[in-house]
Simulated assay, not measured.
Amino acid sequence: MFDWDDLKHFLAVARHGSTTAAGRALNTDQSTVQRRITRLEQRIGQPLVERHPSGYRLTAYGQQLLPHAQLVEQHMLALQNVVQSSARELNGVIRLTCPEPIVSRITGSGLLERLSARHPGLRVEFVMSDHYVDLGKGEADVAFRSGDTVDNALIGRKIADSLWAVYGGREYLARHGSPQRLEDLAQHAWIGFDASMAKHRATQWLHDVAPHARVVATSGSVLGAVHSVKANVGLGALPKALGDAEPDLVRVLGPIPELTRSWRMLTTRQLRRTPRVQAFFAFMASEMDTLRPILTG
């Protein structure tokens, strides 16, 4: 029936007794106040103010309407306070997707405890996957992701480089020897990724450099490949952050330049504007010295 902004100008005139004073209170000009009052009167169908030599006074109907308008104002201010308070408190869950091995490194780093100390209302919920979950469909809010990102709907920042190398278990290498060059790779048993990761860069790289390599086991996750290489089943291309951390593994080649990609922190354009995601990005930016070795080793 009417616009809250029009009602706001009516209340200002009722309080200050003139359109000039009302304009100063609302940080606008006198003509705008008059125009808003006129529009409100047209929508209601009755005059609300009348001009006198000493200024403006409310009509009888304006006096009748005034307490109801004041009640609307109280509710609007209360609503505004709730919205602003919610933004300040930054309550909510950040659903963070990243590969499973990264989760234990994050939880053991003290990052989450410091995030909670800075923003007590924020809580991180992990969505663990070696596959890219769809942020646009709401499957997660923020991603720590390595690899090629071609989704223009996502924005974020680079954290570090993701380095990969070739590893073997100590017992496997004692039995079969260590490859000295790329040409030697075809002579070894290999741990690969299954069909769900057919487009992974490590799968494509092995096919390019050793198309006849003997794949003796496959896994649907990087962590599964690490376990298979540790079990001395064969060689495997693994993230340097994971391979170098395993005392039972030996790095035999690399890092491999063709497997290097960027680690990025990503979200959607819409979520990036929300207070909770803004706060999470700002916190992680301040913790880069901790975050980089978590992702890169």
Rank of each mutant, 00 (worst) to 15 (best):
F2V: 15
D3H: 14
F10I: 10
V13E: 01
V13T: 03
S18F: 12
A21M: 07
A21V: 04
Q30T: 14
S31T: 08
R35Q: 13
R36Q: 13
T38W: 08
R51T: 09
R51Y: 05
P53C: 02
Y56P: 02
Y56I: 05
R57M: 08
R57K: 13
Y61P: 00
G62Y: 06
Q64E: 12
Q74E: 13
L77S: 05
L79T: 04
Q80K: 14
S85N: 08
A87S: 02
L90C: 12
N91F: 04
G92S: 02
R95T: 10
T97N: 11
T97D: 13
E100I: 10
V103R: 05
V103W: 00
S104G: 11
R105C: 02
I106K: 01
S109Y: 04
G110K: 10
G110V: 09
L112T: 13
E113V: 04
R114M: 07
H119R: 00
G121I: 02
E125D: 13
S129H: 08
S129G: 11
D134V: 05
L135D: 04
G136T: 14
A140G: 11
F144D: 01
G147P: 10
T149A: 08
R157N: 06
K158F: 06
L163N: 12
A165Q: 07
Y167F: 15
G169D: 03
L173R: 01
A174N: 11
H176N: 15
P179G: 07
P179K: 06
P179I: 03
E183W: 04
L185P: 00
W190E: 07
F193E: 13
S196G: 15
T203V: 14
W205Y: 15
A210R: 08
V215Y: 00
A217C: 03
S219Q: 13
V222G: 10
L223Y: 08
V226K: 06
V226I: 15
A231P: 09
V233N: 00
G236D: 04
L238R: 10
P239W: 01
P239C: 03
P239R: 01
G243S: 01
P247H: 13
D248C: 09
V250Y: 03
P257L: 05
R264I: 00
L266R: 03
L266K: 07
T267N: 02
L271Q: 14
P275K: 12
V277N: 04
A279T: 03
F281N: 05
M284N: 11
A285R: 11
I294M: 09
T296C: 07
